[in-house]
Simulated scan of single mutants.
Amino acid sequence: MSVLEITPLSPAIGAVVDGVQLSEPLSGANRDALTEALLRHQVLFFRNQPVTPTQQRDFARQFGDLHIHPIYPNVPETPQILVLDTHADNLPDNDNWHTDVTFITTPPLGAVLAAKTLPPTGGDTLWASGTAAFDALSPRLQALLEGLTATHDFAKSFPASRHAISQESRAQWEATRAKHPQLSHPVIRTHPVTGRKALFVNEGFTLRINELPPRESEALLAFLYAHVARPEFTVRWRWQVNDVAFWDNRVTQHYAVADYLPERRVMHRATILGDTPF
């Protein structure tokens, strides 16, 4: 059995993992060790992992059932692997701070992202710790936020103006819109395993705080978006081809830096289903 070497990247978030091949089934001990490391560090990075879509799917499945994205394209023979292929003719839409798929009632537990094609420079991804951001708030603001809920909307990150252009894409978009109406999640989420509190609003999908007037909601969300992105709560990863990142989507946000255009960047993602936030 291999022995995992886990090297933290910052006090708040991020660690590099060595001593495991993600293309092979995990031993029970290694699965437990990765789960523990994920809970502690929130995002794990693995170098030199040339996984196929099937191997990436099978690795992610060891941590839960997988989501099939309703809008992004996927690998035809492995629909659980979505394809993020961005370039001058398909501009990025994930260059904002967001938590994946918070427009469903059970947002993902986590995600596994593999780098397939990279630009000569640029294309980094940043992750932010919602727990570190919450812990740094004053007790009075923490108490206020814990009683609030926020509306999340699929269409904020996937507007019809971009994703419903052709007749076929319009039908797909409208079907997704009907299946995923606006819904509410708590502004502060409790991690179901660790019990730690985390900010759970994000620029990508959050529309408003339900219990506040519009101007107060807008001002408070603007503060929280800026707060979670403070450098001391974040880690920045400079990708190499065949790198893999595995993150806890319940308590993190991430931002894909779109500084590489017109060069091309291709990433594969598997998304692990989660539970209802509380």
Results as ranks from 00 to 15, higher is better:
149 T>W: 04
47 R>I: 09
166 S>H: 08
56 Q>L: 15
225 Y>E: 02
15 A>G: 07
66 L>Y: 07
213 P>K: 11
124 D>S: 11
47 R>V: 06
67 H>F: 15
227 H>L: 09
93 D>C: 11
149 T>M: 03
231 P>N: 04
37 A>T: 02
275 D>L: 00
218 E>V: 01
211 E>H: 07
9 L>E: 04
260 Y>F: 10
47 R>A: 15
270 A>H: 00
155 A>S: 14
231 P>M: 03
178 A>R: 13
206 T>H: 07
244 V>N: 05
84 L>K: 13
59 F>H: 14
105 T>G: 11
271 T>Q: 00
46 F>R: 09
156 K>D: 04
219 A>T: 05
154 F>G: 11
158 F>H: 15
245 A>Y: 02
234 T>L: 03
106 T>Q: 08
44 L>W: 09
99 T>Y: 01
38 L>M: 10
254 H>S: 11
158 F>D: 06
131 T>S: 11
212 L>C: 08
254 H>C: 10
147 G>E: 05
172 Q>C: 05
258 A>E: 01
210 N>C: 08
46 F>T: 10
143 A>K: 14
90 N>L: 11
4 L>H: 03
94 N>C: 09
225 Y>G: 05
186 P>W: 07
183 L>R: 14
221 L>D: 08
236 R>P: 00
36 E>P: 03
133 A>C: 12
109 L>N: 02
70 P>I: 09
263 E>F: 02
211 E>C: 10
36 E>K: 14
230 R>K: 13
111 A>R: 05
50 P>I: 08
271 T>L: 01
233 F>H: 14
108 P>M: 01
90 N>C: 12
135 D>I: 06
183 L>G: 11
77 E>R: 15
265 R>H: 00
52 T>S: 15
172 Q>F: 03
48 N>R: 12
183 L>C: 09
200 F>C: 09
217 S>Y: 02
208 R>Q: 03
9 L>N: 04
11 P>H: 02
170 R>W: 11
177 R>K: 15
216 E>W: 03
142 Q>L: 08
102 T>L: 12
15 A>C: 07
65 D>Y: 10
49 Q>W: 08
223 F>E: 04
79 P>A: 14
170 R>P: 08
218 E>T: 10
264 R>H: 02
